[in-house]
């Protein structure tokens, strides 16, 4: 038996917009605080469907993601010197009707990040699936965030910021 998700599209969208704003302002500490401690962040590569068997652009539990952010904040992450200016565009937000097998709320969205860095503009188009948990005090937490770029099977330039 699966259960209904009971999350309004409006609330889900507001959550995704707020998350995107933290990313665009490079406030990664606040962004990480949106994740559960057992959270996971995955940007597949080469059309992958299994992060244990296929290489990923990023596939990290929160602990490792935190190291990545510490690396960014050292001031010596050369692929972010200068830093990317990014703007997230999120549309087509859809809360799936039923909870997943872990009792999480899957939220699908169309996901586009435009990046300007060092004289170049790069588009990062795809979709995101956020698996959200509603806590006892009615807060939303990200347990899994997956960003599937539509061009993840062709050569991509460096991407040292976070989608």
């Amino acid at each position: 038996m699966t259960a209904a998700t009971h999350l309004s599209t409006e609330r889900a969208a507001e959550f995704l917009y707020a998350e995107a704003r933290l990313l665009d302002s490079h406030d990664y500490d606040a962004w990480l605080a949106l994740f559960d401690e057992d959270g996971h962040y995955w940007v597949p590569a080469d059309g992958a469907i299994d992060p244990d068997r296929q290489v990923a652009i990023i596939s990290e539990p929160i602990k490792r993601l935190r190291s990545r952010i510490v690396q960014l904040q050292t001031g010596y992450r050369h692929s972010q010197l200068p830093q990317s200016n990014t703007q997230h565009y999120i549309t087509n937000v859809h809360v799936e009707d039923e909870l997943d097998e872990n009792g999480l709320i899957p939220v699908y969205s169309s996901y586009l990040v435009i990046e300007a860095r060092f004289g170049d503009v790069q588009h990062w188009p795809g979709h995101a699936v956020h698996h959200l948990r509603l806590t006892a005090d009615d807060e939303l937490r990200i347990v899994r965030k997956t960003v599937v770029l539509i061009n993840n099977d062709i050569p991509l330039p460096s991407m040292a910021f976070l989608l």
């Binding site: 590569a45 990290e60 490792r64 692929s79 010197l81």
Partner: peptide
């Protein structure tokens, strides 16, 4: 895969 590729914690800095 944390180290390699476009987002690699090592190789992205090499490419830079």
């Amino acid at each position: 895969h944390a180290s390699i590729g476009p987002a690699g914690m090592i190789l992205a800095d090499d490419s830079a």
